[in-house]
Design a protein around this nucleic acid. Sequence first.
DNA 1: GCCCCATACCCAATCGTTTGGGTTGTGGCG
DNA 2: CGCCACAACCCAAACGATTGGGTATGGGGC
Lengths: 347, 347
Amino acid sequence: MGARAVTLKDLAASLGVHPSTVSRILHSDSDVAKGAASAATAQRVRDLAEKLGYSPDPQATSLRTRRTRMVGVIVPRLSDLVLAVMYEGIDEAAAGISYSTFVMNSRDDPERQRQKIETMLARRVDGLIIGDAHLDDNLLAELTTRGVPFVLVSRRVPGYPSATCDDIVGGQLVAEHLWAKGHRDVAIIAGESYASTAVDRTSGFVTRWKELGGTIPDSAVVWSRFDTAGGREAAEAILQNRGLLPTAVFAVNDFAAIGAMGALRSHGLQVGRDVAVVGFNDTSLAAELPVPLSSVHSPMLDIGKTAVNMLQRILKGESVTSTRLAPSLFVRESSAAHSTRRRDPAR
Amino acid sequence: MGARAVTLKDLAASLGVHPSTVSRILHSDSDVAKGAASAATAQRVRDLAEKLGYSPDPQATSLRTRRTRMVGVIVPRLSDLVLAVMYEGIDEAAAGISYSTFVMNSRDDPERQRQKIETMLARRVDGLIIGDAHLDDNLLAELTTRGVPFVLVSRRVPGYPSATCDDIVGGQLVAEHLWAKGHRDVAIIAGESYASTAVDRTSGFVTRWKELGGTIPDSAVVWSRFDTAGGREAAEAILQNRGLLPTAVFAVNDFAAIGAMGALRSHGLQVGRDVAVVGFNDTSLAAELPVPLSSVHSPMLDIGKTAVNMLQRILKGESVTSTRLAPSLFVRESSAAHSTRRRDPAR
DNA sequence: GCCCCATACCCAATCGTTTGGGTTGTGGCG
DNA sequence: CGCCACAACCCAAACGATTGGGTATGGGGC
């Protein structure tokens, strides 16, 4: 780097005061560091710091204070739009309280997950935001016993603090919508069973569906990957099952929904007329697709910001409770029509 | 954090040697730190370090060595799939040489861009990878005079080291493809004029098109945002222009292409039959869309990795030359058909 | 027997900040 | 006039690692 950065000592030397005095002055949030320096001196110090563009060395500060003001964020994939947006919320909120964030991709692989967490801890992050929690792993228990502060985001795991969308309610909204549109035969592309998002959205849907008087066979719930290819495969599986013939498909993720739309179209079905499709997350793409996709909006930015707030409180030693933010359904062309097709096993 | 981390001094004390000895042993990549310690001692040290899970404090190390092994990455938006994938490449390559990366979003806003760069420099990153370079800004010149090491990624600016796709060739590929399919009236959704990706892809297309004997009026080149909504608006503008009536549309970005497909469909045109559409980047979505989208594949992961390699060489003081990685065209249903529609001004 | 030279270490300064504890000097009060 | 409080500073020891120098010890060569 070009010019040697200006240090506290430099400032102190050129003003003829002691570094510690400069430190105290620059630190005090009050206008005058009470007891540390005269108002005049304080002003001189601040002026010079400003003029020379002094910025404290975070490494030195961290070394002394034992806090890095860095948080580690771990997500399945950053190229998953949903997590990318949450991360934007996280980063924005973190920047607002002058924290910096490290992100890493775990690809939802438990081993990689541990490894990434270790490298973040080796970097001495103050805490973690975990976006790839698995329901069936004891990683979180280990972190707790090691005393690592963390919050979950996107996915929840009972017993640990999390900021998520209320996925159960989200699933219910879809159930109510499809029921109201006259659908009685539905299938669910349910996502990965280790993710609470998938489980909750599915169970929310199924529970409400049954409350409304509907039935839904186990074979109508297809677990899948969250991406487009996964959605396509799941839809193929559904179409293969001659006993089903759903008039509507609920995919717990927009990308899976897009894949499903592709598969349905390949089978000569027109989405929005022959079959309804509803996704989840209301990613920016949903409204803009050739056939606009109905989707449950989850407040991804806010979820990210909430996670940061929670982590901040945990770092302060306060206790927090998990937050579930309210989703809302956006009905678009893919599921706007009333169901006309009746069950027709002879098709 | 729970247990106090174990330090060099701890290791030294419990083995009865001096911290500096431990440091030298743990440092030497060779089996024995030559001249520093006996093989036996070295082994004892390494064993204990392993057993106690010693990991050096990066803050302390950085303070002393004046290098943080962190690189700052700045992108327009991480929720832009293209940059997200490049970032994955960057992060992977960086992790491979035990560097960590900070990412920040500039939203392509020059002020925000500067501000984010300043906070990265305040964090004392060793270098920058810049993914949102504007052709018309002198930020890069400033960084150069300040002696900040950086490389550009995704977008290039003449005179600065960059790792990009060869966008000119990419544009040419599309021109050749559409020409071969019999199209003679085309429109371009050109992207943001401050981004080399947009400019190069467009000029590559136009140049080749003219070489092939085609003509393309200025009004057929519509500058736009890179996202879905931008593509939709641009397509609307093209359709509004009664003088055009293109049989094919080239969008310099897949998301813009998706938006355009939506607009075309709203106007009763069937993509792949009535009008061809070609995108750029070959994002994971392209192949999976209801109407699979032809797209120019750009090796995003490799671009990211290349950028890291280049930065590493710059940090070592070596000189580097910009790299342009070869694109390749994937033809899919959206542009597979031969053009049948002839110019029909009376439509 | 003496000198020299590896070998195997130890010492201490240093990176830039923070922070608990001095140390002056001045003014006010009784 | 003596004392005390207070303002306005200074001092020095950390934090954990690195690194350019020492310094004992022992063995080999002559």
